[in-house]
């Protein structure tokens, strides 16, 4: 296809991009750690009885996103996916 030439840059560029990607990932992991640890010094005004627990929001956000994506992919998609033009006949 014609757009293949855009996908592959020079090998050096590609390696640099990969390096950046890995740096970004480590930054994200570090940010997550810092945010969880901030639970210790910052006093939380809990809205409910349970959201004051250590790491509640991080844990819930992570689990919610994983459950959402996996359920959509492995439960919903097999049921509802149809080829384009399914309604056209």
């Amino acid at each position: 296809m014609s757009d293949d030439q855009h996908k592959s840059g020079a090998p050096a560029q590609k390696a640099a991009r990969k390096g950046n990607k890995i740096k970004l990932l480590w930054a994200l992991y570090a940010l997550c750690t810092v945010l969880v640890l901030l639970d210790l010094p910052i006093h939380r005004h809990a809205e409910t009885g349970f959201d004051g627990n250590f790491g509640f929001y991080g844990f819930y956000g992570f689990i919610a996103s994983v459950v959402l994506v996996l359920a959509a992919r492995y439960v919903l998609r097999p049921i509802v996916k149809r080829p384009e033009g399914y309604y056209d006949d």
């Binding site: 994200l28 992991y29 997550c32 945010l35 991080g58 956000g61 992570f62 994983v66």
Partner: peptide, 15 residues
């Protein structure tokens, strides 16, 4: 802090 934690960990999940 609550909201940032929720969002950043969702980003982590996406990644």
């Amino acid at each position: 802090l609550s909201q940032v934690q929720l969002l950043v960990f969702s980003v982590l999940a996406f990644v």
